[in-house]
């Protein structure tokens, strides 16, 4: 009998779910970041990033909880991008610490983008602890619409 592709797909989906469940049984000792993200591990303390290519610009997001725009430093040169930041401990005065898990060390992360970006037109904003950067590509590498004669 023919097995439909959707059935196969569903079967693999269920297997993934089971796998995730079994993994999470062992991951509860500590925080379970890592495996759930497809094995993409970042060294402790470096913000995780997402990079999207939207045709005429790149969109870069980074997790920077607790940082204000004064704590962050962005540098762009051609296709080289550097994000660095300092974290201040927000431990209140006169309190006894029970648990300190949040990172307080400064960090730097560098990227080499596939093409040059226009450093003058870069836009960066912070939203709920996520840094969102829009980096327009230089005119020379932007996709062009061709008209057919």
């Amino acid at each position: 009998m023919w097995m439909r592709v959707s059935d196969l797909d569903r079967m693999f989906g269920v297997m993934d779910l089971l796998n995730a469940r079994i993994n999470s049984m062992f991951g509860d000792y500590d925080r379970s970041y890592g495996n759930d993200y497809g094995g993409c591990l970042v060294t402790e303390g470096t913000p995780r990033t997402n990079i999207y290519d939207a045709g005429d610009h790149f969109e870069i997001m980074a997790e920077v909880p607790g940082l204000t725009k004064e704590d962050l430093n962005l540098r762009i040169q051609g296709n080289y991008l550097e994000i660095s930041g300092t974290r201040k401990t927000d431990a209140p005065e006169g309190y006894k610490a029970h648990r300190v898990e949040r990172e307080t060390a400064p960090f730097t992360r560098c990227f080499t983008l596939p093409v040059d970006v226009d450093a003058e037109k870069v836009d960066a904003s912070l939203n709920n602890g996520i840094l969102i950067m829009t980096l327009p590509k230089t005119e020379a590498v932007k996709p062009k619409q061709l008209t057919i004669n």
Binding site: Y37, D90, R99
Partner: peptide, 18 residues
């Protein structure tokens, strides 16, 4: 069949007391 699940992670916390 539920075949997609949003990952659950524990957030990092600091706890202080006075």
């Amino acid at each position: 069949v539920q075949s997609r699940q949003i990952p659950v992670v524990a957030p990092e916390v600091d706890i202080y007391e006075d």
